[in-house]
Simulated assay, not measured.
Amino acid sequence: MSRYKLLILFWGLTFWMLQARAQQTVQFSQYVFNGLALNPAYAGYKDDLTLNLSSRIQWVGINDAPKTGVASVDGLLNSSGNKNVGLGLIATFDQLGPESTTSVYANYAYRLRLDALDTKRLCFGIGFGAIQYRLDGTKFNATDAGDSEITTGIASNITPDFRFGVYYYTPKVYVGASVFNLLSGTGTNLVDNIQLAKQVRTAYLTGGALLPLSETIDLKPSFMIKEDFKGPTNLDIGGYIAFNKAVWLGTSYRTGVQIWNKNNLQSGLDQSDAVAAIVQFYVNDHFRIGYSFDFTTSKLAGSQNGSHEFSLSISFPGKKQRVVSPRYF
C-alpha cells in the first residue's frame, strides 16, 4: 500500500471516529507526555520499554473532588527487529465522591514503516480491557430515610471494553485519533436494581509539532479535541519551550467550544475551564519528572484552590538498541 493510500485511510478513520456517540473520560493537563492514555496506537512509540505514572488532584479545597491516577508501561515486541509491533498495559483509577472507576487495558499496536530511515510510521492500535464501576452508598446523606433509589451499601459491576486508535508520526510532527469505550452502549448497568453510571464513547483528536528556534531552544505546540457529542466539545491547546531538550516550560488553555448546535445543552454555559502552568525536567535521556498547576477560569474559581498534577516516566533501553530518530512526543 502506498504512503498516500495510508494517509487517506488514516484521515478516513479519523472522521469516522468523530461521528461516534461519546461521553468524556478523565482529564489530564500533561497528556502529551503519556500518549498511551489517549491512544492505544501509541504503544511502542519510544522504542524503549517505558513506564509512565500520573496523579491528578483536582479542585483542591472541595470535599470529595476528583482524584485520578494512571500507570502504564509500553514497548516493542522485538526492539532489534522490524519494530512493527508495540505492546502496552495501562491501568486507571478515578474517584469522585462516592463513585470510583477502575480500568485495565492491554494494548496492541501494528506500526507500518513509511520510509527507509524509519523516521515515519503510521500505527494502528487496539486495546482490550475491563472497567469496574463502584458506588459507595454509605457516603450519601438521604433526604428521605429508606429511599430505595439510594443503595445502603457498596454496589459495583465489571464490564468488558475495547478501544481503537491510529497514530502517525515523523521526527517533527504527530497526529492521532482514537475512540474509547466502544462497548459502552451494549448490555445493562444494573446491580440489585440500582442504576449505575458508566463511561460511554469518547473520541480524541490530537496533534503537535517540534519547531527548532535555535541550537538549544525548541518550540513544541500541541492540541487535543475531546468529544462526547452530548456535552460541550473540549479543546485543549498549548505549547512548550524546551531548553537543551532537558527543561520544558509550558502552558495550556482548556475550554469548551461549539462546533455545531447541541440542542440538549443549557444555554448560557460558561465555556472557559482552566489555564495550566506546566514544567518538565529530563534528568537524563531515560528519566523525566513533571508538574502542572491548573488555574480554574470558570465560576468555580472562587470555591477551590486549583488542581495539582504530577507525572513521571522511566525508560529502560535495550543493550543493543539504537534509536535512529529521537522521540520528543
Results as ranks from 00 to 15, higher is better:
residue 14 T to S: 13
residue 313 S to P: 05
residue 182 L to Q: 05
residue 31 Y to E: 04
residue 316 F to W: 09
residue 82 N to R: 15
residue 303 S to W: 05
residue 301 A to M: 05
residue 110 Y to K: 05
residue 118 D to C: 01
residue 205 L to Q: 09
residue 255 T to Y: 02
residue 259 I to H: 15
residue 294 D to E: 09
residue 248 W to H: 03
residue 65 A to C: 06
residue 263 N to Q: 11
residue 185 G to M: 05
residue 15 F to M: 13
residue 186 T to H: 02
residue 329 F to E: 00
residue 165 G to K: 14
residue 37 A to Q: 06
residue 313 S to L: 11
residue 312 L to R: 02
residue 61 G to F: 08
residue 51 L to R: 13
residue 57 I to T: 04
residue 263 N to T: 13
residue 242 A to F: 00
residue 325 S to R: 10
residue 53 L to H: 15
residue 43 A to S: 14
residue 49 L to C: 11
residue 269 L to M: 15
residue 138 T to R: 15
residue 135 L to G: 02
residue 186 T to S: 08
residue 68 T to W: 04
residue 287 F to S: 12
residue 97 G to N: 02
residue 239 G to T: 04
residue 152 T to Y: 11
residue 313 S to T: 09
residue 89 L to P: 11
residue 16 W to R: 08
residue 49 L to W: 14
residue 210 L to M: 07
residue 105 Y to H: 15
residue 239 G to R: 07
residue 210 L to Y: 05
residue 266 Q to R: 13
residue 101 T to H: 06
residue 115 D to P: 00
residue 29 S to E: 07
residue 302 G to M: 07
residue 257 V to I: 10
residue 215 E to T: 13
residue 141 N to E: 14
residue 254 R to C: 00
residue 172 K to A: 06
residue 25 T to A: 05
residue 169 Y to E: 08
residue 197 A to F: 08
residue 12 G to I: 09
residue 203 A to V: 12
